[in-house]
Amino acid sequence: MKSVELSCKVNGRPVSLPVEPDTMLVDFLRGHLGLTGTKTGCREGECGTCTVLLDGMPVNSCILPALKAAGREITTIEGLARPDGSLDDIQEAFMDAGAIQCGYCSPGMMLTAKSLLEKNPNPSEDEIKHALSGVLCRCTGYRKIVQAVRDASCRK
């Protein structure tokens, strides 16, 4: 199979690498770039664990061909902290609320929350629940996650 050059921006940095055309975005991030913070849980877009932001929008990276990201900007959990290295309000709020248990869904949850708060800095509880409904969590029962997002919105 012939490799194709993929150029995009990942966590603010330009990236240009050859990829096999049937590489999914999640494997590009994890395999080619070593950004293993993005997880996979189902490989069919049903659990949201692999969520990354594509031009600020949450998408399932497990079923997104990497080449779809050409010329676009991707944010992964590794890029959520501020440039100075301090953690984002969402990360702090998740830790304070006890919203992280096994941690496997947390990157997807936090990135989805980030996208929500960018668009809607003061979401209602219902808006939070709808926005985050595409990420499954088996540990927390979601309550502390909702609290964390609300708390993060207050920190802004």
Binding site: T51, L54, P58, T112, H130, S133
Partner: peptide, 9 residues
């Protein structure tokens, strides 16, 4: 349709 993630794409 699907989830917010799916609907974005």
């Amino acid at each position: 349709v699907g989830s917010p993630q799916i609907r974005n794409v």
